[in-house]
Write a protein that binds this DNA or RNA. Structure first.
Lengths: 148, 148
DNA sequence: ATTAAATAGTTAAATAATTGAACTATTTAG
DNA sequence: CTAAATAGTTCAATTATTTAACTATTTAAT
């Protein structure tokens, strides 16, 4: 393997790990009762309107039983609710409760301010370029996941 | 908050979550018995030669007791060992066993190949720029974590 | 020099995330 | 119309994590 590539990989492994851990730790401060993963479940349902366990399991790249456990906790907390599908009765539609929607909208404000405080230390172009590359990586990973 | 910034934040939250989850899922395939977090503990000790619980807790941004639990498992697996410090007897130096060192060196090969397969779908300059920005973010997060 | 405060690490109890296998209920296809 | 596929749950086990209480050791203040 080429030496310069190897160094890039080494740097990537170290820095991605660091940023994820520290980023999650900072975000946790804004999320009172809700965990980091639960926050992303709520976000996804909010953006979709309704969604299914299977869809969440695909997005999160985990087993469906992990989603069952997480959604159980969110139902207990009164943040989401389950509704049977009309046409296909195997499907259970997950949606935010009023409480869940309100909580998310308020919390998004705080999270946005946190991320903004970090991002604005970089130039607009640098952020834009960074996110574009990140999105390319997301697509590459998606393809690799599907092909397996 | 400015609208374009808000969109960047939204994109960042979505994509960073996706890449982390899917990246971790892909990496797990290479790590047989060892978990994702344990792999990074081993990596950190390998790079440092020896290190302490407190140092790991700082790097991972978790409590020291979380580190105790993780290192216990790694000791059970025969990957690392604990050694009392000579000068300060409170300190316990963590180091890789021969087995741990060999396992890590072999596994790094596979992980590197995995990351390389992803990276080489982007241009060298794009990766370099991406990692540089990532490293800036890491520094910003570090400062924010310290000031709190 | 002795005591009080700080530091390094562990233990224990609780919660959360995750996997894998076995299971129920429903739908689709041969 | 039965067999296979799909959607979701349950259960048992493992891992990661937090918080509070604890032990052992070192540093600092009087």
């Amino acid at each position: 393997m080429e030496r310069s590539i190897q160094q890039l990989i080494e740097r990537y492994l170290s820095v991605s790990f660091l940023v994820n851990k520290r980023g999650a730790a900072l975000m946790k401060c804004e999320l009172d009762d809700v965990t980091h993963d639960q926050y992303y479940v709520l976000r996804h349902i909010y953006k979709r309107g309704v969604c299914t366990s299977t869809e969440l399991a695909d997005v999160f790249a985990v087993n469906k039983s992990a989603i069952t456990a997480m959604t159980n906790r969110l139902v207990e907390k009164g943040m989401i609710e389950r509704g049977r599908g009309e046409d296909d009765r195997r499907i259970i539609a997950l949606s935010l409760t009023e409480k869940g929607r309100k909580w998310l909208e308020e919390t998004e404000q705080n999270v946005y301010e946190l991320v903004e405080a970090i991002m604005t230390k970089l130039s607009h172009e640098e952020i834009e370029q960074f996110i574009q590359t990140y999105e390319k990586l997301a697509m590459i990973l998606q393809e690799m996941g599907e092909s397996k």
